[in-house]
Design a protein around this nucleic acid. Structure first.
Lengths: 71, 71
DNA sequence: ATGTGACTTGTAGTCCGTT
DNA sequence: AAACGGACTACAAGTCACA
């Protein structure tokens, strides 16, 4: 499994759990909506600083975003 | 704590546990020696693809490299 | 409400070396 | 054995118009 997909799926799953749309989530945490979209789809290859920023926004430890979660 | 420092410390700790020098470890896993040095010192900001590559090289789950380990 | 292509600017990632 | 420097190319960060 591509780490970008694993990461992206986890971000999407946890963001949806907050009930916020990409746009609202992005606005609240200063992350561009389209950039977030790319991350959730696994087409971006973010650096660990971005990873940390997103983990903080989702209020989860960074490690959680790399867990393999089966469908 | 800066995520780069956390990450770097974990990489260093686990690499040293293998008994390999940065150079040998880098050669065996196709990671540039100077780049690895920068990562361990927390001055680099690697992408998640590199993170995964290093985790694989260290034979640990990615999540482990982001754990807060007190000195 | 999200996906996508295209774009500029900055830096990730590599390679040569010296301390 | 590892830190650090300089120079380089590839690609990430960040944004936009449009579907």
């Amino acid at each position: 499994m591509d780490v970008r997909k694993t990461f992206g799926h986890n971000v999407r799953r946890l963001r949806e759990k907050t009930g916020m749309a990409q746009e609202k989530f992005g606005l609240e945490h200063n992350i561009d909506r389209t950039y977030l979209s790319g991350i959730e789809r696994g087409v971006r290859n973010p650096t660990i600083i971005v990873v940390k920023k997103i983990a903080d926004a989702l209020e989860v430890p960074v490690a959680v975003l790399f867990e393999d979660v089966p469908d």
